[in-house]
Amino acid sequence: MTANKSDVRLSVQQLRKVYGVGSRNEVEAVRSLTFDLHAGEFACLVGPSGSGKTTLLKCIAGLLEPTSGEVVLDGRRVAGPAEGMAVVFQEYSRSLFPWLSVEDNVELPLKTSGVPKAERKERVSEALEAVSLSHATKSYPWQLSGGMQQRVAIARAVASNPSVLLMDEPFAAVDAQTRGELEDLVRDVWKRLNMTILFVTHDIDESVYLAERVLVLSSSPTIIQADLHIDLPDVRSQADTRSLHRFGELRHQVYEEVQFAKINPGGERTAAREELRS
């Protein structure tokens, strides 16, 4: 992490989140989290289930107030949902407005932030084209399949032209084949539009396939347990990339970290392990 300070898009500093402060059953969900995300980076956060992934993402998105520490986006401290941050949620059917058509859903954030009408139309149709949904603009979300609904959510996020795109297990609820297509779609959008993406998932294969960088979270209370660079070729495809030898190695490495994470709440044993390794 020696990169130029100016090219840091998102900076998370000593983030801590405790639920039920002041009550008898305080729960420490996130202990201390620090990482930077650079412009154009595609990073995955992986962790075992119950590792506070969603809590973390909500804190970053400004939907939850951290107990201490802070999130900085483009040099501005995040207090409440920030402009320049877009989120794609896992529950696609609940995150789209069922009373608006596909194009109105994509257009709404632009409309309320005061983008002029002509530009709005252009950006909406561009975004819908990027996710290959130009044919279904007038449909209602609930008339579409799950995968298509999630594409609408992605288009909406892309259209608002965010500094950082957060994705919270976006493909956890779609079937395996659709999932592969959507993964390629996200990588395609990321490259074409030169976006910065933070992608949360519990799926190890997915994280390795998608990202340039994988951050492994410990189980709750969460810390970052490992920060791995994924040195796979830039052009990836479901069939070829996944059968690369290097893919297997990386997956193995992430897998071991995740296994270890399960028995390592709060990173207490990380230091001990480092010693063992050396």
Partner: peptide, 15 residues
């Protein structure tokens, strides 16, 4: 109102 929908509205700055 749906919790996810409310969060979505917040994220996209509906005020």
């Amino acid at each position: 109102l749906d919790e996810v929908l409310k969060n979505t509205a917040r994220v996209y700055g509906l005020r």
